[in-house]
Simulated assay, not measured.
Amino acid sequence: MQEPDITLVLGGARSGKSRLAERLTSEAAAARAARRVYIATAQALDAEMAARIDRHQAERGPGWATREVPFALADAIRAAGPEEVVLVDCLTLWLSNRLCALPDPLAADVLLEPEVEDLLDAISQARTSLILVSNEVGLGLVPETPLGRAFRDCAGRLNQRMASIAHRVAFVAAGLPLWLKRC
């Protein structure tokens, strides 16, 4: 059996990052004769988001085990076994979930640090290959609100830390991957 590895797929909204991550997961699972596991961090908090989640599940098709994990992502990664290849979609939704649950979201850097460290530890110790999806949110305008700026800053730092432990990092634009790192 191959050693577990970590791939980070970055991109903007509707860039094609999830499609690439799904393909990479399917290829890795086929090479290992492993199950494909989709860890979904989105929450269906309104009808539009529920429809979006349903559409994404239908587009993936059969053969995926889906685990809905809006908060306890590190635990879900630790629970994944070597007979699985895991796609996490996406880190920025997980971060948003965590940020909005804080008593003071503007202190996110300090308040989320233990959870980010725990997530990094879980990923580093994973017993399976992981494909992580995250939005690159720092390419646009400076957000208008303090909460928006706090989210952008936390997401940028999270992506940097994930990229530092990943074996491969791709940036996707217009459906095309640009490989930033391949180890």
Rank of each mutant, 00 (worst) to 15 (best):
A80G: 03
A80M: 08
A80Y: 06
A80K: 07
P82Y: 03
P82G: 04
P82A: 09
E83K: 02
E84G: 09
E84T: 00
V85R: 01
V85G: 03
V86H: 01
V86T: 08
L87R: 02
L87F: 06
V88A: 02
V88R: 00
D89F: 04
L91V: 09
L91Y: 03
T92V: 07
W94R: 05
W94I: 06
W94S: 02
L95N: 05
L95W: 04
L95V: 06
L95P: 04
L95I: 01
S96E: 08
N97G: 11
R98F: 01
L99E: 04
L99R: 06
C100R: 06
C100D: 14
A101E: 13
A101H: 10
A101F: 08
A101R: 07
P103Y: 05
P103A: 03
D104V: 11
P105Y: 00
L106M: 10
A107M: 04
A108H: 11
A108M: 13
V110P: 02
L111T: 01
L111G: 04
E113N: 03
P114H: 06
E115S: 12
E117Y: 00
E117K: 07
E117I: 02
D118F: 01
L119T: 01
L119H: 06
L120R: 03
L120E: 07
D121S: 10
D121H: 12
A122H: 05
S124W: 02
Q125C: 15
Q125Y: 11
A126W: 02
A126T: 00
T128I: 08
T128Q: 12
T128C: 15
S129T: 14
S129Q: 11
L130A: 13
I131F: 13
I131Y: 08
I131C: 12
I131Q: 09
V133L: 03
S134N: 07
S134H: 09
E136D: 14
V137S: 11
G138E: 14
G138F: 04
G138Y: 10
L139Q: 04
L141M: 15
L141K: 11
L141S: 15
L141A: 14
V142I: 15
L147R: 07
L147S: 03
G148L: 10
G148R: 08
R149K: 13
A150H: 00
A150C: 10
F151P: 14
F151I: 04
F151L: 11
A155I: 12
G156N: 11
L158T: 14
N159P: 03
N159Y: 09
R161Y: 09
M162I: 15
M162K: 14
M162H: 13
M162D: 11
A163V: 14
A163P: 00
